[in-house]
Design a protein around this nucleic acid. Sequence first.
DNA 1: CATCGATGTTTAA
DNA 2: TAAACCTCGATGC
Length: 287
Amino acid sequence: MPEGHTLHRLAAQINTVFVGRPWRVSSPQGRFTAGAQRLDGQTPEHAEAWGKHLFVHLGPEIWQVHLGLYGAFSFRGDADFAAETTIGAPRAAAVTFEPHYDAEGWLIPEPPQGAVRARISARHGWADLRGPATCAVLQLAEYQKVIGRLGPDPLRQPRTDTTPRKDFLHNLSRRRISIAAALMDQAVIAGVGNIYRAESLFLEQLDPHTPSNQLDPERAAALWDRLSEQLRDGVAEGRIRTVRTGGSRRHWVYKHQGTGCPRCGTLIAAAELQGRRLYWCPGCQRD
DNA sequence: CATCGATGTTTAA
DNA sequence: TAAACCTCGATGC
């Protein structure tokens, strides 16, 4: 589920199992061959997420990955390689395997299956990246250009003396698009996707069509706090679950169109907005 | 076996 | 606004 929480989880995972030791990098699919050669044998120093981007720093160069809609990392390894199976879009569970080691004591990875854009290997395990929207090696200036286009990420520490929440309010105040469109704009707030958009607006009882520059500042601040909480929960749990009252229902309105709103009973609506499905309750999401 | 759809973004028209 | 990118699970016949 590649919204912002996924990328922060991924960065943490890479910091745990890859950072600080030389790794091996290849592109079995062949679409990242030159980049993989640059990264191969280097020592990853630090992985970080900013919104939906993953950056791994190696000296002056930075590996940038954006999972897009389909991308995912699959981690495999022996008992010393503590890693979850996949981080990203849904993938079938991997079959267990018998570990074998080469002469230097490195675990021998299984042959790559299907379209593996990048394979990164450590002593005790490896990870396969499939289907990313972006997989590139950046120089510092290019990296700065990418992050310069991103708004505040609720899962990151502030970059300036103003708080990220103030940046968010400021970004909203100078746009005339709907709040629903604004939440999907990564320059307004980084890391929010279609699920968190629907679920945060529902819990804050905000009409998705309200122009973002007409949103009451206190309610906009509450929306930021709500998104921060939801993203933090997503990182902790590894999946988006905004219904926290127990039971099997995971989302309040996302993909629940045509059923009764749990709060007011009105039928939940769905509509296409800028190419994405928007879900909301017309009964109780009003301003 | 074919088709559809998805948590996203960029580019072209 | 639509198409393209790119992968694979779900759905349907």
